[in-house]
């Protein structure tokens, strides 16, 4: 029978494992073999990593879109919006907009003021209590809704950092409020918000580990799974941790590159 070099090494140290007489290097190899190599366990980590990336990616998208909308609703000019003109429709319009703005504020406070773990459990066992739904979707919704609250504050800060003159220039050319926001304000807000946003993305990626509570096999859970089989003290955590680090470093590098490119274009 053909056995791999890893199996051969394992067989070589197995007597020492049984006799509990491993030296340091043999111990290291035992840990690696049991927690990474045996039964193709490295695949488990990679699958977990895939789920973590999938959930993080979509949650970031949800957070960005919803967060931007929330941020705009929280702008002073929306919060204190007055009816433009007299009559029923403008009055109702202004009331609705102000109510939405209040709701956005409440939403942000609740989402930032309660632990993500509770939100995940409530969404899984409460809101989707009797719905057969893919856990990845539950994870995307829970993490996305939570992230949106933080993104909202970051984007709002970014928007407020753009000079008022930029809005006036856009409006004076005849661009409407929404177009001015999309083409002129948000791109500049995004630039100044980028470092804080990078932080938020990094937090989000790591926080998806909480989804292991609802039995989603993401990266942390993959480590937990292997550990529950091997009873190894911490080796699976190190492997998972290294993979998180790899993802975060890659993201940091990419965003740093983007930041430099944006910086070169102006100022």
């Amino acid at each position: 029978m053909n056995i791999s070099i890893f199996e051969q090494w394992w067989l070589a140290i197995e007597p020492a494992v049984q006799a509990n007489t491993l030296n340091f290097w043999q111990f290291i190899y035992k840990e690696i073999y049991l927690n990474v190599i045996k039964d193709d366990r490295w695949l488990q980590y990679l699958k977990g990593l895939g789920v973590t990336l999938e959930v993080s990616f979509y949650a970031i998208l949800v957070g960005l879109v919803l967060g931007t909308v929330l941020a705009i609703l929280r702008l002073p000019q929306i919060q204190h919006m007055n009816a433009r003109g007299k009559g029923f429709l403008p009055a109702v319009g202004a009331v609705v907009v102000r109510a939405l703005s209040k709701f956005a504020g409440l939403y942000i406070n609740i989402m930032r003021g309660t632990p993500l773990l509770l939100q995940v459990l409530i969404i899984n066992f409460g809101i989707f209590g009797s719905v057969r739904i893919d856990k990845v979707i539950v994870g995307v919704i829970a993490c996305g809704l939570n992230s949106a609250a933080y993104v909202a504050e970051i984007v709002r800060g970014g928007i407020m950092s753009v000079e008022k003159g930029q809005t006036e220039a856009g409006r004076s050319l005849g661009l409407g409020g929404i177009r001015t926001m999309i083409y002129i304000i948000l791109p500049q807000a995004a630039k100044s918000a980028l470092p804080a946003m990078c932080n938020e993305f990094i937090s989000l990626i790591k926080e998806t580990s909480i989804l292991s509570y609802i039995a989603l096999t993401e990266l942390t859970k993959a480590g937990d799974y292997i550990r529950s089989r091997t009873f190894s003290a911490f080796t699976p955590y190190i492997v998972s941790g290294l993979l998180y680090l790899l993802v975060v470093l890659t993201l940091t590098w990419l965003i740093g590159k983007l930041e430099r490119r944006l910086r070169n274009s102006d100022h």
């Binding site: 066992f125 989707f128 209590g129 009797s130 719905v131 057969r132 739904i133 856990k135 609802i214 039995a215």
Partner: peptide, 8 residues
Amino acid sequence: VMDLQGNK
């Protein structure tokens, strides 16, 4: 068990 109750 809660996810069994919730059909998941």
